[in-house]
Amino acid sequence: MVSILLLVAVIILAVISITVKKTVPAVLSFALLMFLLGLYYIGYDEKLLGLFQIFVYTGGIVVLVLFGVTVIGSTFPEEKSRPWAVASIVLIAIGFIVIPFIMPNFNVVENAGNVKAQVTVLTENYAEVAIFLAVVGASLLYGSIRMLHTLKHEKELS
């Protein structure tokens, strides 16, 4: 019961952080959302994931967002209304909810394999992990170089 209340509070806070017009209440509701999700994971006996969630999101990312709030001020800028978006998102959500229940043989436990084989995925198949990390690192490097190039171009123009 407490878990359902936590998740309902998470959904309400998510809606508030998207729709509210002031920036600081949006950031606070976002931080509370992430804190409640961390508490939810701790309730699932996944303490490390919960603490990681709380430290990273309500600690690090919210501070970054507050830095952004200092740039845009206390209210969000005006925006165009797009009424079709709500209908399409509701349709997509209903589709996501319906599809797993109409799929035949949706039995995760039988397909899970044994735990030992799962744990060795990151140690034996390290080549895939290395490729993944290399792609992430290359993307970051490319983004940094592009940003430096843009800043240099801006300096030349001014």
């Binding site: 959904i11 998510a14 809606v15 998207i18 920036t23 949006a26 967002v65 952004g68 709030v69 845009i72 969000f76 800028p77 925006e79 165009k80 797009r82 978006a85 709500v86 399409s88 998102i89 509701v90 997509i92 959500a93 996501f96």
Partner: peptide, 14 residues
């Protein structure tokens, strides 16, 4: 779905 709505419908970066 709420996140998808925000990504497709909202106008500002934050």
């Amino acid at each position: 779905a709420i996140g998808l709505y925000g990504v497709t419908n909202k106008a500002d970066f934050l």
